[in-house]
Amino acid sequence: MSLITCKNLSFEYDGILAVKDINFSVPDGAYLCVVGENGTGKSTLLKGILRLKKPFQGDIIYNDELTADSIGYLPQQTPIQKDFPASVSEVVLSGCLNSLGLKPFFTRKERNRAKSNMEKLGILHIKNSCYRDLSGGQQQRVLLARALCATKKIIVLDEPAAGLDPIVTQELYEMIYHINNVHQITIVMVSHDIQAAIKYATHILHLQNTQLFFGTTEEYLESNIGEKFIGELNV
């Protein structure tokens, strides 16, 4: 069963075709890494999947279980968040908003959900700390916990390791792998860290304004494009 299927998809940016001819599907439980150099349409595709940007051509077909309010998202940090006065628990709880429906306030159910996700990511002890005072790695964990609150199926991540040091990056990747493996949550991640991608991902989508490769990680390692791309980075 695939959660998301893209057919002949293309996106336009300011009248220029940013990325075209995308055909792939995200199987349930997969860990898909979208790789490619900067400015090759990765983030644009992600925005399309999240329904933040309309496709220029083609279709994105979602599994019936996957409405907009069942997708978790870990966006890149915005300047606004850097000095935002909010506690960790306030931020995590805001991820439960899409399950509120028409109710105005959170109930015990949402609070417990937020609490268990904070526990999963090891941030329960800092739940009353101010978000802006945390380290980069801790902030990403908070946002990951919020994404977990918003979904039971799939999390979409946009360069989650941007600006983190190598050790913290490693921890974050392990955590995402754990979420995928143990909690059975499908992962779609944009990254330019190809080494981490081949280490953790089950599927790879390689973009360069068009689709160069889509398949499992094993197939990618054996393909010409995969060999070439990884080879270039190793030199």
């Binding site: 909010a86 805001s94 959170f106 918003a150």
Partner: peptide
Amino acid sequence: FYNRIFAVTFDENFAKATGT
């Protein structure tokens, strides 16, 4: 709308992507 105002103020893109 307090909770929704918080979510939209803190992170518009997240709120939008998750259906607000």
